[in-house]
């Protein structure tokens, strides 16, 4: 298939970027989106041009490293019916002769490093603030020593699925990282292990979220719609409930 790509090119974080047009003639419909970008880069390198910088790692849709905005939606989620990341989006979902815009995540808290690569360390700041449980190191405890009710364990798991790709922020009209923060809050708040730090965690993570420059949530729902791991919107309501309760606790 033949496609026309319009790719955001930006030399470094301080440079002014712009969309550049490229044409590819022999794209196979079985290629993943990243394989197609690899093909473009091979082509660019052979011709002595600068390859397009983009992030990728596992290419199995589980690591959270890749992610670009394709035809206006994060991971091209509005192009295919399958909830997955850019690396598992296949070219068969695009028409022959399609014009495809490729842009980096755009958010105040995610500055562009180069081309399609953005700095997502703002997410690390949020996790560092409290997205963990404090446990003594040593041998792993017996799995059944702390029973968790099935429905709560399921809810925790649905939220633990978050791979931190940043699609929620990219899709949010407010550049809010609430779905990411809420996924970790909901994951830990539904498990017995998360209880001792439940109140201090939510306060610290929300403070960190606002502090690193994310916007506030407006309950639009674009975040959950593009999430490759289907983290539900109601997790944000759980974060809110936990935060309000925590404000009356001294921890």
């Amino acid at each position: 298939m033949k496609i026309t790509l319009k790719v955001w090119r930006q030399a470094n974080k301080d440079a002014k970027g712009s969309m550049k047009t490229y044409r590819l003639d022999d794209v196979s419909e079985d290629m993943s989106f990243l394989e197609m970008l690899d093909m473009l880069n091979e082509d660019l390198t052979t011709k002595g041009g600068e390859p397009v910088a983009f992030d990728s790692d596992c290419r199995e849709g589980i690591c959270g490293m890749c992610g670009v905005v394709i035809k206006g939606s994060a991971h091209g989620r509005y192009e295919s019916p399958i909830a997955t990341t850019t690396c598992q989006l296949h070219m068969r979902y695009f028409a022959d002769g399609a014009v495809i815009e490729v842009e980096p995540w755009r958010a105040g808290a995610f500055p562009v490093v180069k081309d399609l690569v953005v700095d997502r360390s703002a997410f690390d700041r949020i996790i560092q603030a409290g997205g963990f449980i404090s446990a003594n190191t040593g041998s792993a405890p017996e799995a059944h020593s702390t029973p968790a009710p099935k429905h709560l364990a399921d809810r925790a798991f649905d939220n633990a699925c978050c791979i931190g790709c940043g699609a929620c922020v990219a899709a949010c009209p407010n550049g809010s990282g609430m779905l990411f923060t809420a996924a970790k809050i909901t994951h830990l708040a539904n498990l017995p292990q998360g209880q001792p730090e439940r109140h201090s965690r939510v306060k610290a993570m929300v403070a960190a979220h606002d502090g690193v420059g994310f916007g506030g949530c407006q309950n639009v729902g674009e975040c959950a719609a593009v999430c490759p791991k289907k983290v539900p919107l109601e997790s944000i309501a759980q974060l809110n409930r936990d935060l309000f309760a925590s404000l009356f606790k001294s921890v």
């Binding site: 407010n174 550049g175 916007g215």
Partner: peptide, 8 residues
């Protein structure tokens, strides 16, 4: 906060 969060 949203205008700042939204970026480019």
């Amino acid at each position: 906060a949203s205008l700042r969060g939204r970026g480019t």
